[in-house]
């Protein structure tokens, strides 16, 4: 086994996914199969290969530090499930 059910539960919790028992079982075996396949890569000698950070051969994409008009409060909140006084409204967060 490459991955345990407990690990899948942990990852699901971190991603805030509520999975049923059936889904957990299915995902555990699917992910195990995927990782088993990825494991094949370990057969390659990658000691002198720089880790890939990006798949596209591009670098240095910049923007200038010049302000442009923003969306504005109304548009920004247009799709908010709940809003109050120009702000997104979320359940009370207590630190």
């Amino acid at each position: 086994m490459k991955i345990t059910r407990a690990q899948v539960e942990r990852v699901a919790q971190l991603a805030r996914l509520a999975l049923s028992e059936v889904e957990l079982d299915a995902l555990t075996s699917d992910m195990d199969a995927i990782l088993g396949y990825v494991d094949k890569l370990n057969e390659l000698d990658t000691d002198h290969i720089v880790p890939t950070a990006h798949a596209v051969p591009l670098e240095n994409a910049f923007r200038d530090d010049t302000a442009r008009p923003s969306l504005g409060t109304d548009k920004a909140l247009q799709n908010a499930p709940a809003a109050s006084d120009g702000c997104f409204l979320v359940p009370k967060v207590i630190e």
Partner: peptide, 27 residues
């Protein structure tokens, strides 16, 4: 102290109306 945000061109001015300086990137 840049004029705009790190990944979009919204202004960084302090103290304006809430969410007035937002765009699809920073939202």
């Amino acid at each position: 102290t840049t004029d705009t945000k790190i990944f979009c061109n919204c202004s960084t001015t302090f103290g304006n109306e809430p969410n007035s300086q937002t765009c699809p990137v920073c939202l």
